[in-house]
């Protein structure tokens, strides 16, 4: 059982991808390879024996270079990916901040998309009715509500996305690089909201390439390198070590 103080527990997570079989997408290829006995598997380990706990109410950052397994780890936590080995346990409702545009249908208007996206996150119609004004208010998109979203800029889409994901106070909020899109005023607004959530005991997990942002927001950090935990601890320590390693 999960420890009561923890929001997330990862135990010896391993994620393997089979590189060669992913390229096979037709029956013909599959049979040909099968007959030639070429169905060998190239194992790629994206996440290797990663274990850590995230305490309730913590703001937790994940840093590392491109391809070190950050996003894979987030996907495992949010339940999108099942790890090949190991166990994940989470407590409470998880609100993933969906990456730009996913979950929106660009042919629909913002108004329709807010309801669609709310239901993607599992919110009821009644709940969305109540929160609709909050969302519009926060995103500052009232004038464009009935415009199809294909005419939106990426920053405008991000605003709506962030406003929907944070309309509740979820137990766990997952933020994957999304803050980089909005203008600086909106970024400030988002950070304020995250700060407010932290006071409400929401656990926040942030992935970002902006070290400054991680340092400003997070209490604890993990540094991943090639799918393994390189270092874990207080943000200042981990970030300093990470920055120094970059210079080398």
């Amino acid at each position: 059982m999960i420890n009561n103080e923890n929001a997330v527990e990862l135990r010896d997570i391993e994620m393997h991808f089979n590189m060669s079989s992913e390229k096979l997408q037709s029956l013909k290829e599959y049979f040909l390879k099968f007959m030639k006995r070429q169905l060998h598997f190239e194992d790629f380990v994206a996440v290797d024996k990663v274990s850590f706990d995230i305490k309730k109410g913590d703001v937790f950052g994940i840093v590392g270079l491109n391809g070190c397994g950050k996003s894979t780890t987030l996907k495992i936590i949010s339940g999108i990916l099942k790890p090949t080995k190991g166990s994940v346990e989470t407590q409470g409702v998880i609100a993933p901040l969906i990456e730009l545009g996913a979950g929106f249908d660009m042919e629909l208007t913002a108004r329709e998309n807010i309801y669609l996206n709310g239901s993607v996150l599992g919110y009821s119609k009644k709940f969305m009715d109540e929160k609709f004004d909050d969302i519009v208010e926060f995103s500052e998109m009232r004038d464009f509500l009935d415009v199809p979203m294909k005419n939106y800029s990426s920053g405008m889409v991000a605003r709506i996305g962030f406003a929907i994901a944070t309309v509740t106070t979820p137990d766990i909020l997952i933020v994957d690089e999304i803050l980089a899109v909005g203008d600086f005023l909106f970024q400030q607004k988002c950070e304020e909201r995250i700060n407010k959530m932290m006071q409400d005991d929401t656990t926040v997990i942030i992935v970002s390439h902006s070290i400054e942002q991680i340092e400003r927001l997070c209490k604890h950090c993990v540094w991943l390198e090639k799918g393994r935990v390189k270092m874990i601890g207080e943000t200042a320590e981990v970030c300093n070590a990470y920055k120094n390693s970059k210079r080398e």
């Binding site: 166990s87 669609l116 239901s119 599992g122 919110y123």
Partner: peptide, 30 residues
């Protein structure tokens, strides 16, 4: 060893009924 995020089928279904409805009406509108 492999169990993650066990969610029961029925509670899931209830929670995502509005999604089903919205997706259908989306298809219809489009």
């Amino acid at each position: 060893s492999t169990a993650t995020n066990n969610r029961s089928f029925f509670s899931d279904f209830k929670r995502f009924m509005p999604l089903l409805k919205n997706l259908v009406s989306k298809d219809f509108k489009i």
